[in-house]
Computed example of a mutant assay.
Amino acid sequence: MTTDFPDIDALRAAVGLELGPSDWITVDQRRIDLFAEATGDHQWIHVDPDRAAAGPYGTTIAHGFLTLSLIVPMTQEIMSVSAAKAGINYGLDKVRFLTPVPVNSRIRAHLTLTKVTEVPTGVQIHRHVSVELENAPRPACVADSIARCVF
């Protein structure tokens, strides 16, 4: 379910609020292979199921940056700012890949709004995002994500 923030005041009031989770996303081999093609990262642990079967995880795993990139659709599903003319990714602060994401596993995101600051074109929204790996004791990824909303 998407939480909509109609204006800057609503965003400010939500600092400290935990939102989510998003829906689950299945990370299948096709998604991993397409990411490899798009980025040029063809490391065998990601794209060679036969070799990966004998590797440390017994199967292929998602690229860490694939997991990180999926934060975008998951956070868009969790929250929106309807008054904004545009939203852009501004950057990331601390990012950690805590647990490998095996092929065909599912991930989803939870986020906490940590700070909202005004900038000349609108606001920057700081969010702590935790990417949950189904049935794993630790997240697949945690990141402090910064988005900019233009008003």
Score class of each variant (00 low, 15 high):
residue 1 M to P: 14
residue 1 M to R: 14
residue 3 T to D: 07
residue 4 D to R: 10
residue 5 F to Q: 06
residue 5 F to Y: 14
residue 6 P to I: 10
residue 6 P to K: 15
residue 7 D to C: 02
residue 9 D to V: 05
residue 10 A to D: 03
residue 10 A to I: 07
residue 11 L to Q: 13
residue 11 L to P: 08
residue 11 L to T: 10
residue 12 R to V: 11
residue 12 R to M: 09
residue 13 A to I: 04
residue 13 A to N: 15
residue 14 A to E: 00
residue 15 V to G: 05
residue 17 L to E: 10
residue 18 E to D: 09
residue 19 L to G: 07
residue 20 G to W: 02
residue 20 G to A: 12
residue 20 G to H: 06
residue 21 P to V: 03
residue 22 S to F: 08
residue 22 S to M: 08
residue 23 D to L: 09
residue 24 W to Q: 04
residue 31 R to G: 00
residue 32 I to D: 04
residue 33 D to A: 06
residue 34 L to F: 01
residue 35 F to E: 03
residue 38 A to Q: 11
residue 38 A to Y: 09
residue 41 D to V: 00
residue 42 H to D: 12
residue 43 Q to S: 14
residue 44 W to D: 15
residue 45 I to R: 03
residue 47 V to D: 11
residue 50 D to H: 13
residue 50 D to Q: 14
residue 52 A to T: 11
residue 53 A to W: 12
residue 56 P to G: 00
residue 57 Y to R: 10
residue 57 Y to P: 01
residue 58 G to D: 11
residue 58 G to R: 10
residue 61 I to F: 04
residue 65 F to Q: 00
residue 67 T to Q: 01
residue 68 L to N: 06
residue 68 L to I: 01
residue 70 L to S: 03
residue 71 I to M: 02
residue 72 V to L: 01
residue 73 P to W: 09
residue 74 M to F: 02
residue 75 T to S: 11
residue 76 Q to L: 13
residue 78 I to H: 10
residue 78 I to P: 09
residue 79 M to I: 13
residue 80 S to C: 07
residue 80 S to T: 15
residue 82 S to Q: 13
residue 82 S to I: 07
residue 83 A to L: 00
residue 84 A to S: 15
residue 85 K to D: 14
residue 86 A to M: 15
residue 87 G to W: 07
residue 88 I to D: 02
residue 91 G to Y: 06
residue 92 L to K: 05
residue 94 K to W: 08
residue 94 K to S: 07
residue 99 T to D: 06
residue 100 P to T: 05
residue 102 P to M: 10
residue 102 P to F: 09
residue 102 P to H: 11
residue 103 V to G: 01
residue 103 V to S: 12
residue 105 S to G: 11
residue 105 S to A: 14
residue 105 S to V: 06
residue 107 I to Y: 04
residue 108 R to F: 00
residue 109 A to E: 03
residue 109 A to D: 00
residue 110 H to E: 09
residue 110 H to C: 00
residue 112 T to F: 05
residue 112 T to A: 02
residue 113 L to M: 00
residue 113 L to I: 14
residue 114 T to S: 08
residue 116 V to E: 07
residue 117 T to W: 04
residue 118 E to D: 12
residue 119 V to Q: 13
residue 121 T to K: 15
residue 124 Q to C: 02
residue 124 Q to I: 03
residue 125 I to L: 14
residue 125 I to Q: 12
residue 127 R to K: 15
residue 127 R to F: 03
residue 127 R to E: 10
residue 128 H to R: 13
residue 130 S to E: 12
residue 130 S to P: 02
residue 131 V to T: 07
residue 132 E to N: 01
residue 133 L to I: 03
residue 134 E to V: 03
residue 135 N to P: 07
residue 135 N to Y: 11
residue 135 N to F: 05
residue 136 A to P: 02
residue 137 P to G: 13
residue 137 P to R: 15
residue 138 R to W: 09
residue 139 P to Y: 00
residue 141 C to T: 01
residue 142 V to W: 05
residue 142 V to Y: 05
residue 142 V to S: 01
residue 143 A to S: 09
residue 143 A to P: 07
residue 144 D to S: 02
residue 147 A to W: 11
residue 147 A to I: 01
residue 148 R to N: 04
residue 148 R to T: 14
residue 148 R to I: 14
residue 150 V to W: 12
residue 151 F to Q: 08
